[in-house]
Structure formats: C-alpha cells, structure tokens
Design a protein around this nucleic acid. Structure first.
Lengths: 150, 150
DNA sequence: GTAGCTAGTACCTAAAAGAAACTAGCGAGT
DNA sequence: ACTCGCTAGTTTCTTTTAGGTACTAGCTAC
C-alpha cells in the first residue's frame, strides 16, 4: 500500500475510517508544494539546499568516499556532510556502501532517482555561475540606493 | 567596470595593485560554486531555498501584492516573506513598487533575470511533486531498516 | 612513538527560522 | 462610538538549525 497516495489522511482521517480503493496510479491527492501540510513541502526543503545541490552533482560523475566529497565541496563541515548524506540516503537519492578495508571506506553513489534530481539542481548551480555578474551588480545598485535614502 | 570579474581581488589584491586589462567577455576567474570563497556560493545559498522557489514561481504568472503572496505560499510567516522578498529584490530577481493607495499597496513583480531562475527552481518543485511517492517509500524503507539494526 | 588515514559522533556556540504581538491609518459593520 | 479588518511590514521572543572544534577506533608509515 502506498501511504503517500493518502497523505492527508494521516491527519484528517479518524481511526476506523475506510479509505476507498484506488485505481492503480490514480493518486487521491495531487501533491502541491504550495500547501503547507503537503509532504512535498518537506522534501522541497531538503532538496532545495546548497549542500544537496553540490554533493549530488559531483556524484553524477561516479561514486565518492566521505572525505573525497569533503575535499571537493569546499567549506562543508564533517557534521553537515554526514547529516546531508544521511538525509540523501533516507530520501533514496544516494546509496551508501561500506567496505571492510583498513581503515573502513564508505562509498556514496547516486541512485537513478537522485540522478534525475541532480540534473535539476545542477541547472540552478549553473544559473548562479552564469548570472553571478548580473546578481552582483544588482546588489551593488540596491545597496547604493538604500544608502541614498538613509 | 565589472567588479565581479575579479571577485577574488577584493580580498587578495592589495591597495595599489594593478589589474591587467581584460578582453571584453573574458572573465578573470571562472565562477565555481565548489570554491568556498566564490560569490556564487552565497548566491546559491539564497536561491536554493524553499521560499525563493515558491515565491518566484508564482510571480511568473504576474505581479502580486505582499499579502497575496502570503496567502498563496501557505505557512510562510510575515517575517520570512518580508526577508525573502528583500533578498530577491537586492539580487535583482524581483522588483518592488509601492502605490500611494489607502492603505498603501506594494506590488512585487519578477524581472527577466528572476524569470530565468524561476524556471530552474520550478523544475525542482515539480520534481518534488512528481517524485514524492518514490521519496516517501524510500524514507519508509530506510526507517524500517534502521529499526532492524537498532 | 607519533603522526596520519579512514568515517564518522558529541558538544557547544552562533546564526537563522518561526510564532506572535505590535505599528498606523482608514473603511465597514453593529 | 467601538471594534474588526485591511494594508505592509517590524519587533521581540523562542526554538531550531548550522557551523566549528574536539574526540573516537584501529591500522600504516615514518
């Protein structure tokens, strides 16, 4: 059974409520990120994230170990890396595999689901790189204008 | 002059350093989100954000007032909306126009720059809506597995 | 012996997010 | 007349999150 088809029932349905049978593929509710209790909102909060974008996109090129990622994604702390990877694994976007080497090595690789998201997030990273000039000059103009008024 | 072409010079260059002339379009440094001091990193942190994605995408359909956005983007607090809009305006992604009505109304509209980003971020929101089933079942599987081990 | 590698976790602090109350001036309802 | 609600925010407080640093174990190389 797909809980997610009835995502609002967990809150609204009373114990004993019968959920009418669904045709396969016919979702009961259309997921909508603009609804505050929709699970897509939580997922959007995980994935629309700096570290997620950076990590995921590097894993597209092939599996990487914990410390490899840490070196590539400059400025990420061990804590945030560990936390983000755990989140990504839970969401089914990356898979974790430990090898009984000495010392233990752990390999993170991207799943097909993660790959489809990585492409979308990469577009955002690329946008930032392509449009940094425009953004920085907009910021400069805005800051100058604020000074004028003040 | 485009300050952004020399984004690292602000930190590394000493007063009196001469920056050699650039051919038009030839940036001194290629912006790279993986470098921790690159300004693209800061911008990525702003834009890879839940509220930014939601607000920006709704503004594509036309200008909206403060409280209209607040009603559409369920669950956003006035503080976060105010803050996010200010950020978006500073980054040149939306423009703000106040009308001397009673009470004052303020209209937010998307800029061409904002529009180009909105498309990328919308792809991420849509991904969340399209793949929520896969993510939720991956989470369920992960949580069950963790229980097993524990 | 000790310094470094592996992949993390634990602790503490600093920053950000979120909830709620408050601003002011006017229109509408009772 | 009084209170409610509308406009667009700001202010304050609390809770959550992020970030930095130190620490773990067991092995290798110097």
């Amino acid at each position: 059974m797909h809980l997610n088809q009835f995502w609002k029932s967990g809150k609204k349905a009373l114990a004993g409520d019968k959920v009418t049978a669904q045709k396969p593929g016919a979702a009961m509710r259309i997921p909508n990120v603009y609804e505050k209790d929709c699970p897509t909102r939580l997922v959007l909060d995980h994935i629309a994230d700096k570290w997620t974008a950076l990590i995921l996109w590097k894993l597209v090129d092939g599996p990487l170990r914990f410390n490899q990622i840490r070196r590539i994604v400059e400025g990420i702390s061990q804590k945030m890396l560990s936390q983000t990877l755990k989140q990504l694994e839970r969401d089914g976007l990356v898979s974790r595999r430990a090898f009984a080497t000495v010392p233990v090595t752990v390999e993170y690789s991207i799943t097909p689901l993660g790959h489809s998201l990585a492409e979308k997030m990469a577009a955002v990273s690329l946008w930032a790189q392509d449009n940094i000039d425009s953004v920085l000059s907009a910021q400069a103009k805005y800051d100058a204008g604020v000074d004028e008024i003040a």
